[in-house]
Design a protein around this nucleic acid. Structure first.
Length: 677
DNA sequence: GGTAACTGGGTTTTT
DNA sequence: CCCAGTTACC
């Protein structure tokens, strides 16, 4: 048993009110750096000790696995290291929880237990396969590409709006293809089901459907007495509906969010759901956290000045960490100068005792750090990059995952397609034929051996040996424990990777680590689900946490930096077109989201904030024409905001011209010859 | 007919 | 740097 002092110690008045709120639904409007995690953890502890709710009946929903792990660990620590059963709070991302439920009760969702999860890249591949059948390829016009189709699909599903509406509002250049898209999506869902595949959106939809089911709903609802939702401003319509279905009466529902930090609109999220809570639950109590424990006043002043103000939910942060220096705006000649300036300030701070670990460079788009990365490498400044391309998006990792998915779910034709085409001499057409013969020969790979001549007939003679070897290894690995399967996959990929990629040694080393990670799971299904729902950011991620004595700078997209903080933050590329991104300038909603993104970036800084404006932008192109553009300081830094910042201009450093002799003297001497003549 | 090798144009953010 | 479209080879 706990007394209030233990749980609530160190909380301020606002946080304490939120943690000990009684009864009905609660919305905590928590500004950046106001101790929202601590408050949520305290509330969970209070619900247990003062309301008598067992830990196992408290559900904590988050958006990233990092946030979930963080909070669950702190909650466990606060409750005295989880002794006894039922002492751990249930928690995870919406998708992870949904997956757990769907996996446990697959048959109730009309899915065979071996179903596999499509990651967004697979989803794009599948749409690409179906696209030609639906008038979206070879049209002569510019048709939406597979990745765009995937975006449109997800937007429709996660907002619950029809294609025509979504296309008109957010993808106006695709309006001419609206009916084709509708046909494509119909085929996509049918194919998914036929192949026992479930995409990220499906996970949420299935959970929602179960909760809405007359019979299953009460059972699922009955599992929990209290629901805590983090980052509520980032829920989409399906997630909002899941929360509503979990707590129709709002009893013991706690939502935490800040609508000024809603940055996932492209994924169907809408901060309007946060405002909607008040209408959904008439008894909703709202507690505001505006005491900021993160940033010095200089940073807060700017943050408050540029904070996007949605009607109704105003919030001004007050700090208690002392004045600090005002943020500094560094105008740079171009991107190279910007890179040099960032390196110089990073190293200055490092010399003054701020390790690289305590500094971060936050960018809008991952390619914004390209030039900087070259400069950092040249100066031997180690860095780790978060966001952008992931480990699981690289070709060889996808090859590995394809082989694993075939073993887990032999009906996964997408995985088959990829693995088959890895063989020399087998392209799309032969792969298709192999697949057709596999499907018609009733038994899919489980009992499929290398002797099956019928399948080998359909590929060119030169590919037969390699294909037979692959099929043999798959057959041998089928039904084995995860560790043996991982070894089998490595063995079958080895020759294929060597033949396909120039840098095969490095890629095979990656795969060995991947195989080790997969082998640690009880089954290949668990390994795959884990890798799909929470992909490692880099190969080194798989090798456990980096060594503590290693010091490195963080480069991160602003999206991936949400919820984090660093003593020193550098924000480059503050020009119109980069932030706000010109892709978002089309609709006003997009512009508002860019604005919030800027707010998120600035509020990551604890002590010092440096902002950089490259005035001339290079558009790097292969070939001759390098275009230039003139950068304008981002529109979000209005005059009043600029007045709250220091400002310097960094000229392009002029490189010394190497000379063989003293030119001035030589010129004078040659002039002298004129006078002498 | 089908695959590989080449070339030219385009590039946001992520569970 | 990745994808689509084209051409050259088997």
């Amino acid at each position: 048993m706990f007394d209030d002092g233990d749980i609530l110690g160190g909380l301020n008045e606002q946080q304490r009110r939120a943690a000990t709120h009684q009864g009905g639904p609660l919305l905590v409007l928590a500004g950046a750096g106001t101790g929202k995690t601590r408050t949520l953890v305290a509330r969970a502890a209070w619900l247990r000790s003062c309301q008598g709710i067992p830990a196992s009946r408290i559900l904590l929903l988050t958006f990233t696995r990092r946030a979930a792990g963080d909070m669950l660990a702190r909650a466990a620590a606060a409750s005295g290291s989880g002794s006894g059963d039922g002492s751990r709070i249930c928690g995870g991302t919406f998708h992870a929880i949904a997956h757990k439920i769907v996996r446990q009760h697959a048959e109730s969702f009309s899915l065979p237990p071996q179903f596999t999860i499509l990651d967004p890249a697979d989803m794009t591949d599948l749409l690409d396969v179906l696209r030609p059948d639906h008038g979206l390829a070879d049209t002569g016009q510019r048709a939406p590409r597979a990745a765009t189709c995937a975006d449109i699909y997800t937007r429709c599903v996660s907002t619950g709006r029809p294609v025509s509406e979504v296309v008109t509002a957010s993808f106006p250049w695709c309006v001419a293809f609206t009916s084709e898209l509708a046909g494509l999506f119909r085929a996509y869902t049918a194919r998914k089901r036929a192949r026992h595949l479930v995409d990220f959106d499906d996970l949420l939809l299935l959970w929602q459907a179960a909760l809405a089911d007359r019979t299953a709903g009460p059972v699922l609802r009955g599992m929990f007495d209290a629901i805590l939702v983090d980052e509520y401003q980032d829920v989409n319509a399906v997630q909002a509906s899941i929360v509503r279905l979990l707590r129709p009466d709002g009893q013991q529902l706690t939502c935490v969010g800040d609508d000024a930090q809603a940055i996932y609109g492209f994924r169907g999220a809408d901060p309007a759901h946060l405002r909607q809570l008040a209408a959904d639950y008439p008894g909703l109590d709202i507690v505001r956290l505006d005491r900021n424990y993160r940033s010095r006043q200089g940073v807060l002043d700017l943050a408050n000045l540029i904070r996007p103000s949605e009607p109704g939910l105003h919030l001004v942060l007050t700090g208690d960490r002392g004045p600090g220096r005002p943020p500094l705006l560094v105008r740079c000649h171009d991107e190279s100068t910007q890179a040099v300036e960032i390196c110089a300030r990073v190293l200055d701070a490092y010399e003054d005792g701020t390790p690289l670990r305590d500094q971060a460079v936050l960018v809008r788009a991952s390619h914004h750090s390209d030039i900087l990365e070259i400069e950092l490498s040249a100066r031997h400044i180690p860095f780790v990059k978060y966001g952008g391309l992931r480990f699981t998006d690289t070709a060889h990792v996808r090859d590995f995952l394809a082989a694993a998915r075939i073993l887990a779910n032999p009906a996964d034709e997408l995985a088959w397609f990829r693995l088959l085409r890895l063989h020399e001499g087998i392209g799309p057409v032969h792969a298709r034929r192999v697949l057709d013969s596999l499907v018609s020969g009733e038994d899919l790979p489980g009992g499929f051996g290398p002797q099956d001549a019928a399948v080998l007939e359909v590929v060119p003679a030169k590919s037969r040996e390699a294909l037979a070897a692959t099929l043999g290894r798959l057959a041998a690995a089928a039904g084995q424990p995860a560790a043996a399967q991982a070894i089998g996959i490595l063995a079958l990929l080895d020759p294929l990777i060597r033949a396909r990629y120039a840098d095969s040694a490095a890629r095979l080393a990656d795969l060995r680590r991947l195989a080790d990670a997969a082998a640690a799971h009880p089954s290949l299904h668990d390994a795959l689900a884990e890798l799909t729902l929470d992909p490692p950011v880099s190969a080194s991620d798989l090798a456990g946490p980096p060594r503590l004595d290693e010091d490195y700078l963080t480069i991160s997209t602003i999206h991936a930096a949400k919820g984090l903080e660093w003593p020193i933050v550098h924000v480059p590329h503050l020009v119109d077109g980069a932030l706000p991104s010109d892709m978002a300038l089309g609709d006003p909603g997009g512009l508002a989201e860019e604005h919030r993104l800027f707010y998120v970036a600035l509020t990551r800084a604890r002590d010092h904030l440096y902002m950089y404006v490259p005035l001339r932008l290079h558009y790097h192109r292969r070939g001759r024409d390098d275009r230039h553009g003139l950068g304008q300081v981002t529109r979000f830094l209005h005059p009043q905001a600029l007045a709250a910042c220091g400002s310097v201009t960094a000229a392009r450093p002029v490189p010394a011209l190497p000379v063989a002799g003293p030119l001035g003297v030589t010129v004078d001497a040659s002039l002298g010859a004129l006078w002498d003549a």
